Amino acid sequence: MGEDPAAPHRSHAGGGPLPEGRPTSEEGPSSREERRAAVGDLGAALRELVDAAVRTEVPVGELAAVAATARTLAERLRADTRGLHDVAAVDDPDTGERWYSPVYGPGNPVAPPMAAESTPDGRATGRVTLGKPHEGPPGLVHGGVVATLLDHVLARAVRAAGRGGLTATLTVTYRRPVQLGVALLAIAEVGTTEGRRTTASARLVAADDPGTTLAEAEGLFVALRPERAAAVFAPTGRDVAAWTTRS
């Protein structure tokens, strides 16, 4: 995805506009793959930090010292930031690939992250193991996180089948408690399509017990008309195709 001349510009520490996706490093421009590798490495390190932060019982003084260090590191990253609606240089919005997705994004420290794959017949599978950062009741995965995982594989199945769309309705049925630290599979398949509306269903199971459903979901996805998508995603300054009507 080359540079889009219509894309919003962002400012860097030295002042003035910086084209979307251009690094400020004195080492010069880097490829998208190089940047993705660095983003993924930082994301993994931050996930380790998040896990440590929600499990630690170190003394109060050490908590204060680490907080101060974290704020210093945050200031370093803020030396060059994009706007709230700007698309990251590592993303591909035409295919729906989001490197900072809260579900699977390698660069997002709140993402588990889920490893997902799909096939053109409208099936998708996500693999994930959840720890303390996603805990609800003690020892159990938060129900909202379960819903989020199911929503993602549903959408991925719909997109794999060649249908764009945003979630219109999501109905989740929780069958059994979902334990932390258990390898999970989220399995989805596309259902029926009528005009811009597509249905899909999904199940969440333990990888070592795929016959027992922990939670299941039914979703309805509505593809945006091109003109509506243009209005919805106008703040990004990009032509976003992954959530629109497909021919």
Rank of each mutant, 00 (worst) to 15 (best):
D51I: 07
V145R: 15
E3N: 03
A53K: 02
L170E: 07
A241V: 08
D121Q: 11
P93E: 04
M1C: 07
G136I: 05
L77K: 01
A217N: 09
D151H: 00
V128F: 05
P17W: 00
L73D: 08
P19G: 13
G2V: 02
T199E: 06
P177R: 03
P109R: 09
D92H: 01
A115H: 12
F233N: 04
L84G: 03
A64M: 12
W99Q: 00
V146D: 11
V172F: 12
V158W: 05
V66T: 13
D121G: 00
I187D: 13
G139K: 01
V50P: 05
L180D: 13
S31R: 03
P235M: 07
A223P: 00
R47M: 06
P29W: 04
D51Y: 01
R203M: 00
T193Q: 11
A74D: 15
G16S: 01
A186S: 14
A242T: 09
G61L: 06
H152N: 08
V60Q: 15
W243R: 02
T198N: 00
A74Q: 14
G144N: 10
M1L: 09
L150A: 09
P19Q: 04
E227A: 10
A74T: 15
A64Q: 07
L170I: 11
Y174S: 01
L46T: 12
G211F: 09
E3V: 14
P112Q: 09
A155R: 06
R22L: 14
A38P: 04
D94F: 03
A168N: 13
A111S: 06
R238W: 04
A65D: 13
A116L: 04
D151C: 11
R197I: 09
D86A: 13
E216I: 00
E62A: 14
T24P: 03
A188D: 03
R176M: 12
P112T: 07
D94C: 01
L42T: 12
A200V: 04
V158G: 11
S31V: 05
G143T: 06
E189T: 14
E135W: 13
K132S: 15
V103M: 03
P120D: 01
A231N: 00
G21N: 03
G28I: 07
G83D: 10
P138W: 02
G14M: 15
